[in-house]
Design a protein around this nucleic acid. Structure first.
Lengths: 181, 181
DNA sequence: GTCTATATATCGATAGAC
DNA sequence: GTCTATCGATATATAGAC
């Protein structure tokens, strides 16, 4: 069962945008890896930005689901732990693996992209909604950083000779410590 | 006492590279803000990359000084605390303020820049050298993340109505918690 | 030190044949 | 669905006058 061309464009674009950056990756490069000409891409996507939009729409949806759930929960330590677990599951999540890193690395280049702006806003909301209204600045920072630890951990430990499971476990343990009262 | 042109180019370039990204910022834009033509820039810097080099060389030097100092210290909790303090001082540091953010936001676009590669390597070394050889993966991640917290904190708290001092204090407190045994 | 003018290359995007 | 050919804009960089 062969993948369709649209999906392959998305995969190649995601990888190159992540490795090289959005601006530094041309449609010519994407087309060459796919084995077609630049013009062929325009049959599948209207613009270069459209490729990005198709990538990030799914991520925005996931984030909004998590945020909606969080808003219905009491702002307790137990809720925060569950947010981190759900977020971690999304970050390393099945088929959308890698979109997180793409987003991290292209925030400036894509700072005017409407969907990216929404993702950043939701992310900010998420960190705010984790803490009760009377939390101190330090507490709020700790809770926010717990989510951040899941990204940073993977980068910081990429040179260690550890399995993905071990890295994941270490990330969750550090996140948990940041959530302790 | 008027600044010289070379310094003004560096200031404008640093700001635009940080706000818009390296690739998205053209020499034309820099020249326009300076009030000269593109060609004039080439009198002061040989290439666009040369402007970057002039910016990051200082940061590399700072980082190498800190690393050299760290390597002579025992890997104790006290040493780790002092590394964080010195690093924090560099991050918000006087005249080189803003280079940290520039580096964070242009890692992909400038991934082949020799000085940037060195900075990334030294940064990695720094996180490794903080922990004793027998530290667990989780401990190593915690120590590394303590340095990271100083960057992330500023981003995460940029929308809070806090003074720079308060944000800085919160960052240091969270970093300190990550260093606790 | 800064200018005008230009070389050369690449980009995103489109038109139209097949 | 993919091609060739091309448009118009913009990029980095250089040559040479002043």
């Amino acid at each position: 069962m062969r993948e369709d061309t649209r999906t392959r464009i998305q995969e190649i674009a995601l990888r190159l945008f992540t490795e090289q950056g959005y601006e530094a990756t041309s449609l010519r490069e994407i087309a060459e890896e796919l084995g077609v000409t630049k013009a062929a891409l325009y049959y599948h996507f209207k613009t270069k930005d459209d490729i990005v939009a198709s990538l990030v729409d799914t991520r925005l949806q996931e984030l909004e689901e998590l945020l909606a759930w969080l808003k219905e929960q009491p702002k307790t330590a137990e809720t925060r732990r569950e947010v981190v677990e759900r977020y971690a599951e999304q970050v390393r999540g099945g088929r959308h693996l890698g979109i997180g890193r793409f987003l991290e690395r292209n925030q400036t280049a894509l700072r005017d992209n409407p969907t990216l702006i929404k993702i950043r806003d939701r992310m900010m909301e998420l960190t705010v909604e984790m803490s009760p209204p009377d939390a101190t600045p330090t507490e709020r920072l700790r809770h926010a950083l717990a989510l951040f630890a899941l990204h940073a951990g993977k980068w910081l430990m990429k040179e260690e000779e550890l399995s993905e499971e071990e890295v994941h476990k270490a990330c969750l343990e550090v996140a948990d410590r940041l959530l302790q009262p």
